[in-house]
Amino acid sequence: MSESVKIGNVEVGDFPLLLAPMEDVSDPPFRALCKQHGADVMYTEFISSEGLIRDAAKSVQKLDIFEYERPIGIQIFGYDIDSMREAAAICEEANPDIIDINYGCPVKKVSCKGAGAGILRDIPKMVSMTEEIVKAVNKPVTVKTRLGWDENSKYIVEVAERLQDVGIQGLSIHGRTRKQMYKGEADWTLIGDVKNNPRMHIPIFGNGDIDTPEKAVEYRDRYGVDGIMIGRASIGYPWVFNEIKHYMKTGEHLTKPTIKERVEAARKHFEMALEWKGERLAINETRRHYTSYFKGLPNFKEYRTRLVTEDYAEQVFEILNEIEETYVGEAIL
């Protein structure tokens, strides 16, 4: 594909790799690492529309975006159309490149209120809400969603058309239903059907289970999508973006990051987290990344336990230094 993909007027590259919006993961420190290692488009963690319009500190802090992250989308979720319209306008003031609507989050406390993937049980409302948000802002609006609520309601081909008709400029589809949560295998067949529907003219991005360069190439070629959104495979492993790009270009694998590079990334991640969200949150929310930063290291259990239980920043840095000294020169599986 030689032409650059565009979301509205925003150029996002020839075959963009997008960092999925993930709660307590896709924050500025992690996004900075993913950008450095080849991600083309960033999305914030999802932000509650109710939280934004009530000026809740946690929601407002998630509006923090930085110039080096561009192009970046701010993602919002909610069940009330007026609140979502108002929240989209607040997001626009933060000056992202894109406003994204979350119609995909399967978590009970979100979906059972009719937000996130919950709206897949009410397609007319999903379409009206989207239309109102598109009208409320001047930025391009994109949507992230799933195939349907359950096996019997996989209406994504029709839904995609209807969302395009009310003005969205890009669509990311996770290849599972809400009922599946993250279990089983993502089914990309319907994602391909949406992309290959002659009525569609906006970019379609596939999401779900892409965790190797080979799979990225296979799914690109088989389903014809315009780009791929990567979520869980990037947690603690921001190198995945450049690895996929290199493989797409050359058919060869990049050398895996060394221990020194892994420790450096974990350290940088933690430093930025401390700066952005303070010690307590930085310690708690960076823990989920450590297992992946050091995946494949032999006899790592003791270090992992210490990393995920340590309560002071100074000690976390000491443990990271220890890991580097212990494993320098060690082969990583």
Rank of each mutant, 00 (worst) to 15 (best):
M1R: 12
S2G: 15
E3R: 11
V5P: 05
N9C: 07
V10K: 02
P16E: 10
L17V: 11
L18K: 07
D24K: 12
V25G: 04
S26G: 05
P28A: 12
F30S: 03
L33S: 11
L33G: 07
Q36Y: 11
G38L: 01
A39Q: 03
A39R: 06
Y43E: 04
Y43L: 00
E45M: 05
F46N: 00
F46S: 01
I47A: 11
I47E: 09
S48L: 06
E50W: 03
G51D: 11
L52F: 12
D55F: 01
A56M: 02
A57W: 00
Q61G: 04
K62L: 15
F66C: 06
E67I: 04
E69T: 04
I72W: 08
G73W: 13
I74K: 06
D82I: 13
R85H: 04
E86W: 04
E86T: 15
A87W: 11
A88W: 12
I90C: 01
E92I: 00
A94C: 05
D97H: 14
D100N: 10
I101Q: 05
N102V: 00
Y103V: 08
V107R: 05
K108I: 04
K109N: 13
G114H: 11
A117H: 08
G118T: 11
L120V: 09
L120A: 05
L120Q: 03
R121Q: 15
E131G: 14
I133K: 07
N138D: 06
P140S: 04
T142Q: 05
T145M: 09
R146Y: 04
L147C: 11
E151Y: 02
K154F: 07
E158P: 00
V159Q: 00
A160N: 00
A160W: 00
R162K: 15
L171C: 01
H174E: 04
R176W: 05
T177M: 01
R178A: 14
G184W: 12
W188C: 03
I191S: 01
I191T: 02
G192T: 08
D193Q: 01
V194R: 03
V194W: 07
K195E: 02
K195Y: 12
N196F: 06
N197L: 00
P198R: 00
P198D: 03
H201Q: 12
I202G: 01
G206I: 01
N207P: 02
G208D: 06
D209F: 10
D211V: 14
D211N: 14
P213E: 08
E214N: 00
K215R: 15
V217W: 08
G227S: 03
R232A: 00
I235E: 10
N242V: 09
G251P: 12
H253L: 15
T255V: 03
E261N: 02
E261P: 03
R262W: 13
A266P: 09
E271N: 12
E271R: 14
L274R: 11
W276C: 08
E279C: 09
A282W: 12
I283E: 08
R287E: 13
H289N: 14
H289W: 07
Y290R: 08
T291Q: 14
S292F: 14
S292Q: 14
S292Y: 14
G296D: 03
R306Q: 15
D311Y: 08
F317R: 08
F317H: 13
F317W: 11
E318D: 13
L320T: 14
N321I: 08
E325K: 15
E325W: 06
Y327F: 15
Y327R: 10
G329S: 07
G329C: 11
E330K: 13
I332H: 06
